[in-house]
Design a binder for these strands. Structure first.
Lengths: 196, 196
DNA sequence: ACAAAAAACTATTATCCGTTAGTTTTGCAG
DNA sequence: CTGCAAAACTAACGGATAATAGTTTTTTGT
């Protein structure tokens, strides 16, 4: 009965993707049904197919939107000509911020990309690998210029990416610590360590 | 036709749980069917029910086995009376090692615990929270004794736990770096930082 | 106000799922 | 050998799933 409002936020497809991201995060992609998604939007399941082609397409939209956001930001950082340490700091800050205002989407992209169908699955993995390699280059460059310790670049990037991804589980404890506190603390920890 | 061999590795239930962990890791719990699990064991799906009560029970076995392993190790570390830095180092090492020899199980426990049914879901979450709180205590103690920087204990623990969990995605690149290299590098990074 | 387009609805289909029931085969103990 | 328990098999059920077809309602543009 009630139509999906194509609000100022975006097209109807966007509204569906937004609600789907919230549902997929809570229950997982495979465990979420189109009936549930319809219900959360106030319409019947088959009505969804007036706007999207398949359940799988919704997951594609979510995952590639997130991947694109990260790629665009990385390109900006790379062109700034800052030091490696500043670049890494800015990347960590971006990860934290995007986790705050696009929590559901980033979570789904991180956890449910396996459920993508080919050729989207391969494409997504390539983009991830490329992003990771760019970060490795930043670290390597920083070591060469003497800005960073002589660490193994891959290990450093893995550690950083894993740590920022873990902000997922902070979201639940929002009351106990603010976003800026978390951001500051994690950057210090990752860049300057724990030892006194 | 072929019976499941109750090998020296453990009971038939254990063999099923092992294969299920591999399947659930690759495809996700909800996206894995009992028919697929049966096939990977060389038997028909209904035959599984001679050994296990339900699909959900398999997930319970996997998750609580992992939780128990971590709890036992933590208790050992806590009773050793080492410094906070040494305790944390040993915990990080344990996470890395268990990720190597029980990769599928740890991965499933980390990613699929949401699919547990009550009261197992609540119980699992309480155990996780308790584990996390114990680590926070170790960090707090280390700060009080002057061994560690005056960081926010929760942020430090979140960063460490997230980073070691990320070893998941290293597993794919085994060729490029050895386990000991990874272990050493990550411990240095997490405890001593990246800055020169 | 009215026609056309967009988007909702109902009814239905084929498929797959976890699980049960009942039966047959297997393998070990006596 | 033989008998019995363990564990495999086949057949099937009820329910849920994604998706399609066809129809009706709602919104939009002139």
């Amino acid at each position: 009965m009630a139509k999906i409002k194509a609000s100022r936020n975006g097209t109807k497809k966007d509204v569906i993707a937004k609600k789907a991201a919230a549902l997929f995060r809570k229950k997982g992609f495979a465990a979420s049904s189109m009936r549930e998604l319809g219900e959360s939007l106030g319409i019947e399941a088959p009505s969804l197919y007036n706007h999207i082609g398949s359940k799988s397409e919704i997951l594609q939209i979510i995952c590639f939107k997130v991947a694109n956001d990260f790629n665009i930001h990385l390109a900006q950082v790379e062109n700034k000509g800052e030091s490696a340490l500043n670049k890494l700091g800015e990347i960590i800050r971006f990860h934290i911020n995007i986790m705050i205002h696009s929590f559901d989407e980033v979570f789904v992209a991180n956890h449910e990309w396996k459920q993508l169908q080919e050729p989207f699955l391969s494409n997504f993995l390539i983009q991830r690998k490329t992003y990771e390699n760019s970060l490795i280059s930043i670290v390597s460059e920083g070591i060469k210029k003497g800005d960073l310790k002589n660490v193994h670049p891959y290990v450093a990037v893995l550690t950083i990416l894993s740590a920022v991804r873990g902000i997922e589980s902070w979201h639940r404890n929002k009351k106990n610590i603010s976003a800026t506190e978390l951001e500051k603390g994690m950057i210090i920890h990752l860049l300057k360590g724990l030892t006194k």
